[in-house]
Design a protein around this nucleic acid. Structure first.
Lengths: 227, 227
DNA sequence: TACTTTTCACCTAGGTGCGAAGAT
DNA sequence: ATCTTCGCACCTAGGTGAAAAGTA
């Protein structure tokens, strides 16, 4: 299924004349498996992680971008799809349910016509990580507040809104949940790649939605079958 | 609205390692305006053409293709949209209703990194024309057979099928209409560009559907508002 | 018990011809 | 009289959570 809410990034400092590939991948945060403690509304460690799954890259479908486009438009990853099916044939990103993940955004500057996507030797690249987007993958929501919050926010879930509007009190609870799980996270943080773009390029996550500062309560996404 | 039936082309003789841009445009066939003679089931000249409209190119959204892709897949133009609104802001192809048109498919070989789409000096290109795809643009169908044929063939018109299934006799009439309007058209014809690709590349229109040999009875497409 | 899978009603998003109304 | 525009019911295509059924 689609990852929701959507990760959106803006770029600055890119060369308007150059071409760029923009990618996303999602990497494990630790080597643990989690379970949800309902009475405490929090995630607890529940043992070692399951075996790692095939790593996949999501190449943004609008790639290649011109630097000019990147400076003008926001890049939206709304079509990223997640699955827990390790044999997935659709190219979706494969995750282990009940594990904690960190989405990453990569940008590759195309230097020449030797266009192979994975031949990075001749291309400069950078990786950006927004710690506030860490999440725990699930097949079903573990917290009714999150369910309601998503029903309120995702246009495709409109059919459930009448029966589950968030009350003001619930909205406060959501805020405190986010607060509780987002300690020690700076609003913007950049992890440099080994290479450098040679300029001050950076990626800034959109803050247009309450969800762009998500927590690790499956707020960002969840996993389901890929059928 | 979308052009229907869809123009689909296959390419051969391209360089698997090269990159190609594939385009469509639609050019006037003559300088005439037409009207439809219901009693004769044919188009008649009805005066001089209206003033020409801004020419637009439809760059196939999957461009750039690798030559390898072109050899494997068919290129489908199902998303081409037509309008009669000369102030159209959506980038659709602008046509005069009741005028006769010829779609053209262009392929450009990208030679280097000087990537500007319209700077063809450094790029080789070829243009392909399939005379059987000539059509007259309309805002409303002029012939009930064509209406039925399209209802039968376009999945989005399924809701009208019960009331207008084509009878066997009507199917024969369609065939004779097509026959009547397709005299002197070879099944495949190629107009070379000024430049040459330096190989035996060619484009072949798909013959997967009865409609790939269309006539000039608004069978291929029609024009409507761009709202 | 604690997840996971499947199915389904209900949405978004947008492509159809129809028919009434509008325009010239 | 002849075309064009607009609103609409009816589709395709596919993204939702609920709930029932499955798994271990």
């Amino acid at each position: 299924r689609r990852m929701f809410p959507t990760i959106r990034v803006s770029f600055s400092g890119v060369d308007p004349e150059a071409k760029y590939i923009v990618l996303m991948d999602i990497v494990p945060v630790d080597n643990k498996r989690y379970r949800y403690a309902y009475h405490r509304s929090s995630w607890l460690v529940a043992g070692k992680a399951d075996p790692p799954l095939p790593a996949r890259l999501y190449v943004h479908p609008d790639s290649p971008f011109t630097g000019e486009q990147l400076l003008k438009q926001m890049v939206s990853f709304e079509k990223v799809k997640l699955t827990n099916n390790e044999l997935d044939q659709h190219g979706h990103i494969i995750l282990n349910s009940m594990h904690k993940y960190q989405p990453r955004v990569h940008i590759i500057k195309k230097k020449d016509h030797t266009a192979s996507l994975l031949n990075l030797k001749s291309e400069e690249f950078r990786t950006f990580v927004f710690p506030e987007t860490v999440f725990t993958a699930v097949t079903a929501y573990q917290n009714q507040l999150i369910t309601k919050l998503k029903i309120d926010s995702n246009p495709f879930a409109k059919g459930f809104r009448d029966s589950s509007r968030l009350t003001d009190i619930e909205r406060e609870s959501v805020e405190s949940l986010i607060q509780k799980h987002s300690y020690a996270r700076s609003p913007i943080r950049t992890y440099g790649g080994e290479d450098d773009l040679g300029d001050d390029s950076q990626a800034t996550q959109s803050r247009g939605s309450a969800f762009t500062t998500s927590d690790n309560l499956s707020l960002s996404s969840w996993v389901s079958s890929s059928t």
